[in-house]
C-alpha cells in the first residue's frame, strides 16, 4: 500500500514537473526519503504494539485489577497503580483545568495584547509547552525542599508536577478555541449592552467549550502516560494499599510498568506488558473522545 502511494505521488509530481518543462530528480528523491522515514516510524510502532500484545495478552485478566504487587508474579496485580493513576490524573485535572482556562481567558479576552508584559507571558507559555517533563519534576522537588516537605510520595505532589506540565498546553488550546469564536459573536453581545465579563462567560466561553474539552483531554492523556517527573518525586514505591486521599502515597501505571520491566522474572515482564495494554487502551479511548468532540462540534457558524 505504501509503495502504491509513493508511486502515485511520484507519478503526479513527475507529471507536474514535466508539464512545467523541467524534470528534476531531487524533489522525487526527497519525497521517497520522507515516505521511508514515515514507514520506519510506523514499523517500530507496529512492532512495539504487537509484541506488547503478544507478551501481555495472557495476563490481561481480572487479577490485574484486583491484586496488589507481590513478590511472585502469579499473585501480583496493578490495582494500586490503576487507582493511583486515577487519583493523580483527577487531581491534576482539578488543579490545571480551571487555572489554565482562566489564564487563557484573561490573556485572550481581557489582557491588553500590546502590553510588553503580556507579550512576554505569551512567549513564555509557548516555550513552557516544549520543556521536557523531568524539568517540572525538578521544579516541584526544589519547591518542596524550600517548603520543607519531607515526604514527597503524596498524590497532590505528583499532581502538582503534572498540572504544571500540562498547564501551558491547556492555556494554548483554550486560547485557540476562544480565537475560533467569531468576533461578530462578541460584538453582537456587547451591542446588546452586555459587559465584557458577561460576554465571555455567557457567550464566548460556552462557544469555545468543545475546543477546550478536546485540548484538555489530550493534555490529560499526556499527563497520564508521564513517568519521569513522578519517578523523580519518589513515585517508585512498593504499595500494597489503595491510595485514599490527596496526601496518600501512590504509584501510577507508567511507574508500575517501569518497575516490573526492571525485574528479572518473565512473569513480571508479562505483567508490565498487560499494564501497558491497559494504558494504551485508555489513551486511545481518550484520544478518540477528543476527536469525536472535535468532529461533533466543529464549525457551527
Amino acid at each position: 500500500m505504501a509503495t502504491y502511494g509513493i508511486g502515485r505521488v511520484v507519478e503526479r509530481s513527475l507529471a507536474g514537473r514535466s508539464r512545467g518543462g523541467e524534470l528534476s530528480f531531487r524533489p522525487v528523491l526527497f519525497l521517497i526519503g520522507l515516505w521511508f522515514c514515515l514507514f520506519f516510524a510506523l514499523l517500530f510502532l507496529v512492532v512495539l504494539v504487537v509484541t506488547t500484545f503478544v507478551d501481555g495478552a495472557g495476563r490481561l485478566d481480572l487479577r490485574l485489577f484486583t491484586e496488589y504487587p507481590a513478590a511472585a508474579p502469579e499473585r501480583a496485580g496493578a490495582r494500586p497503580a490503576i487507582l493511583g493513576s486515577l487519583w493523580v490524573i483527577g487531581t491534576t485535572a482539578l488543579m490545571a483545568v480551571p487555572l489554565g482556562i482562566a489564564a487563557a481567558v484573561h490573556l485572550e479576552e481581557f489582557a491588553d495584547q500590546k502590553n510588553w508584559f503580556n507579550r512576554i507571558i505569551e512567549i513564555n507559555v509557548q516555550n513552557l509547552a516544549a520543556i521536557p517533563s523531568i524539568v517540572y519534576g525538578m521544579l516541584t522537588l526544589s519547591a518542596l525542599a524550600l517548603l520543607g516537605v519531607a515526604n514527597k510520595n503524596m498524590v497532590w505532589v505528583g499532581a502538582l508536577a503534572l498540572a504544571m506540565l500540562i498547564l501551558p498546553v491547556i492555556i494554548i488550546a483554550t486560547r485557540e478555541a476562544l480565537r475560533a469564536v467569531p468576533r461578530e459573536i462578541r460584538q453582537g453581545s456587547l451591542a446588546l449592552g452586555a459587559t465584557l465579563l458577561q460576554t465571555t462567560l455567557r457567550n464566548t466561553l460556552p462557544a469555545a467549550i468543545p475546543g477546550i474539552a478536546t485540548g484538555t483531554i489530550l493534555a490529560l492523556s499526556r499527563a497520564l502516560g508521564e513517568a519521569a517527573p513522578l519517578l523523580l518525586l519518589g513515585g517508585l514505591v512498593y504499595l500494597t494499599f489503595d491510595p485514599n486521599g490527596l496526601a496518600s502515597g501512590y504509584t501510577t501505571m507508567p511507574i508500575q510498568i517501569f518497575n516490573w520491566t526492571g525485574r528479572p522474572q518473565d512473569g513480571f515482564h508479562e505483567l508490565a506488558a498487560a499494564t501497558s495494554i491497559l494504558l494504551l487502551v485508555i489513551l486511545v479511548a481518550m484520544n478518540a473522545i477528543a476527536i469525536i468532540i472535535r468532529n461533533r462540534f466543529q464549525k457551527r457558524w
Binding site: 461578530e184 446588546l192 449592552g193 462557544a207
Partner: peptide, 22 residues
C-alpha cells in the same frame, strides 16, 4: 450588523440574552 450574527444558542435564548444580561 451587516452579517447576521445569531449566538450559537436556541432562538429563545438569543432573544432572552439581552434582557438577561441587562
Amino acid at each position: 450588523f451587516q452579517k447576521p450574527n445569531p449566538f450559537p444558542k436556541s432562538i429563545f435564548d438569543n432573544i432572552a440574552y439581552g434582557p438577561r444580561v441587562n
